[in-house]
Every structure is written in C-alpha cells, then in structure tokens.
Design a binder for these strands. Structure first.
Lengths: 230, 230
DNA sequence: GCGTTCTTTTACAGTTCCGTTACACTCCAC
DNA sequence: GTGGAGTGTAACGGAACTGTAAAAGAACGC
C-alpha cells in the first residue's frame, strides 16, 4: 500500500520539486500552500507523514504543528527550516517533530529522512502521552482509564479520542462542529444526529461523572461540551 | 461557509480596493463609510472580522473599537493606520485589536493578516476576561457566578451578556433602547414588552440583590438600569 | 458464515431559555 | 387623592436544546 505524504510549503518551486521526487519514489502526495490548508489536510486526509515548512504565510508552521498534535498526536512530521533558525528547530523538535531538514537540501537527503522516519514510525505505533483525568489517568496504549482506587474501565477508540481532545482544551467550551472537525475529522459536517452526545453520555459513565450535575464533562448549553479545568 | 468581513474606511478608493480583493478571495464583505455606521454594522451584522480605519469622519476609530468591544468582546479586529501613528496603534492593541496593518499596505500583506487573525480566532473563540460582581465573580466560560462563599449560580447566555454590558458601564444608567441595541442587537426596536425587565429580575435574584432595594442593579426611573459603581 | 463490539441513527421525553401577557404596585405631578 | 406613566413579577407557552433508550448498521475476529 502506498504511503501518503502531505507537503506544506508556500514556495511553489520548492514544493513542486519535493512533490515530484516523492511521487517518483512511489508515494502518494498531497499539497498545501498555506498553513491553514495544511492544518486541515493533516487532520482530514489520512496521510502518514507531513513535510512542514516553518515559514508560511498566514500562520506559523510551529503553530500548525501544535494544532496538528492535538488531533493526531502520533503523526510523523519532518520540518523544513532555513539555515539560521536554530531556535525554531529546537522548538519544533520539542513539539514532537520527528526530524528536520535544513534548506537548501538535496532531494536525496530529503528522501532518506522521509524513509527513515516512516520506518521508525512503523515500529512505534503510538508514543502518545497519557493524560490525567479527575481521580485517575488515561492510558492511551491500553485504551483504558485507571483510577486511583485500582479499578479500570476500557474505552473505545472514539471515546478515547474525544476525551483526549476535550482534555487538551480544558476550560473551553468545544462546539459540536469543532468536535466533528477535529475528532471525527469530517470537515464541514452538519450536525443532524446525536452521535456526539451519545459518546459524552458513555464517557461520563466511564468517568463516573454524575450526568445530572457533571463535574468533569460539562454541558455548556448552546455552545458545546467542556472539560472542567482542574 | 463564507467568512464575513466588515470594512470600515472612509476613503472610497482604498475601501474599494480592499473590498474587491476580499471578495476575490471568497469572503462576504460589508462596507461602512463612517464610524457610526461601522459601529452599528459591527454589532448587528454577524461578521467574523472587522477591518477598521482609525482615521474616520465623525467618530474616531478607537472610540468605535472601544464600543464594539462592549457588545462583541471577542470579535476580531484589524486596525489600519497611517505610518506615523504609533501611539494610536499601541492604543488600538491595548483596546483589544488583534493586529494592525500600516498604510500603505500591499493586498497580499492584508490578506495574510486577515487569514492569520481568522485562524487564530477560530481556535480561540473566547479569551474574554471574567469580571467581578459584588460578593463574587462571573465565570464566562462556565457561564456561572461564583461567590466568595463557594456557592454558584448558572446564568443563561443572555443573562450573562446583559450583566456584562451593565458591569462594563458602571455608574451609568443604560436605557432600555441601548440595551436592546447593544445586548439584544436589534437596531431600531421599540420597547413593547417587559423582556429586559424580566431579565433584570432574574439577574437580581441570581446576584442575591434585594429587589425591594437593589444594591447592585439599580433602577433609574425613567432612564433605565445601572450597575452600581463599586 | 456468526457473534461481538463499536458506532451511528432514530425517536422521544425532559429541560431550559426567553419573549409575552396580565396585573399589581410605585412614583410623581397636579 | 387621582391619574397616568413607569416598574416588578408571576405565569404561560413555544422553541430550541439536551439526555438517553433502543434499534439499526459497521467493523472485526474467528
């Protein structure tokens, strides 16, 4: 099966060069010219790797990276930087970039790094950080909640993703539209059904959150759901 | 879904240039020639972003910005300034402008800033500050009042907006017409019903304000309502 | 295939919001 | 005190929103 790579780069000459060489190597390639576009494609297309220019019009590449990590924490990312930007590079790696390539780079070097990162990521299916929930913590790898009293509850994939997204945005009401876009990854979707609500019901139950007056996953009427900060 | 942008600029040549390039980029565009008109449109139209010239006939751009913030605290605003006006720029940012562009500017630069600001505001739909009320404070995100004794009372969206508007104008009697225009956002509305009064009743109750001799939300007979200055 | 588990849809009940109406009451000028 | 304008508030009802059971559909492993 073809690996899918997303290239986010505003300079069309450079982008074209990268795209061509990747296609020549047998990858399926998506292109984005802006940070905004790149972010959306990284979330909605199921690419396996992102090549991300840090200097982009509109939105900074590091910001893109940060946001992509919210929805796809394990998506491999290689950042492209100009020679000088050492601090950006460091920041990028801290944000979970898997590697970086300094411009100008040779096609050969780029391809080598791409393949190296893909190989590595294949062996490491998930290195996502676990996170805390009130009274316990969430274990991403096992997909379960572990409470301090030792009890455990399994979560389904979707439940885990929804919970993680809410927990990563504490204190902010998340609209159903945003949840659809970022967790379900269906971009413009109209909300007709109660799918999200059902997942919240189940999450509350597993989190032992009283549905009649929830303390963890709050309902903000007319706005959406919110993970209660602290 | 199209983003809606309001352009407030008196110079028709400049305004037309901006409007055209925004439309070309697929935005829906509203225009205002004067500050007053701009203020009304910013409040009553549901635009997502305002481009605001600071030098306007009639009413100063900074004044407009201040008033817009009362009703729509999170509405993204980019201010347009002439080269020299550094102090205006600083003041604008202090008033909560999201970015500024110095005239003369290139279309490309303007568009880049517009997209950056829209993007930022989409992910951070609310960074509005909570505010104090006697005996406690108002938590915007949770939409509740938290009193110093630890008790909480939930507010509806409208109640919160009304309270915020009154609190932001302490010591000034606000007429029902102004409340309708700025909180209900219905421009011309005649007052036929007791809707506003009912909301005040409910607010007083939640604020624990004695309706027989209110200390927090005062009735100014013949004028309107007033939040008692500290 | 077949059962199991997860996810989505449907349907409906319950809740909340909020504008309206009706009426009592207050204030004030006369 | 009288009358009228202004205000307080109980009560109602429609609309919008949310919670949840149950059924239907998908995905997966065996």
């Amino acid at each position: 099966m073809k690996q899918r790579i997303l290239v986010v780069e505003d300079d069309s000459a450079i982008r074209q060069g990268i795209v061509d060489s990747l296609k020549f190597k047998g990858f399926e390639v998506f292109e984005a010219k802006t940070g905004l576009q790149g972010l959306e494609m990284a979330i909605s297309s199921d690419c396996n790797l992102v090549l991300l220019d840090l200097i982009l019009p509109g939105k900074d590449g590091l910001e893109i990276l940060r946001e992509v990590r919210l929805t796809r924490p394990a998506l491999p990312v290689i950042i492209l930087t100009a020679k000088g930007d050492e601090s950006d590079r460091v920041q990028g790696l801290q944000l979970g970039a898997d590697d970086y390539v300094v411009k100008p780079f040779s096609v050969k070097e780029l391809l080598a790094r791409v393949e190296a990162v893909l190989r590595r990521s294949a062996e490491r299916p998930l290195d996502v950080k676990d996170f805390e929930v009130p009274g316990g913590k969430a274990d991403l790898a096992r997909r379960e909640l572990r409470f301090e009293d030792g009890t455990r509850r399994e979560l389904s994939e979707r439940e885990m993703e929804l919970l993680r997204y809410l927990v990563c945005n504490p204190g902010r009401a998340i609209s159903r539209d945003e949840i659809l876009a970022r967790v379900w990854r269906i971009p413009a979707g109209r909300m007709e059904t109660r799918t999200i609500d059902m997942h919240v019901v189940r999450l509350r139950e597993k989190l032992r959150d009283d549905p009649d007056s929830p303390k963890v996953l709050l309902t903000i009427r007319g706005k959406g759901y919110m993970f209660a900060a602290t």
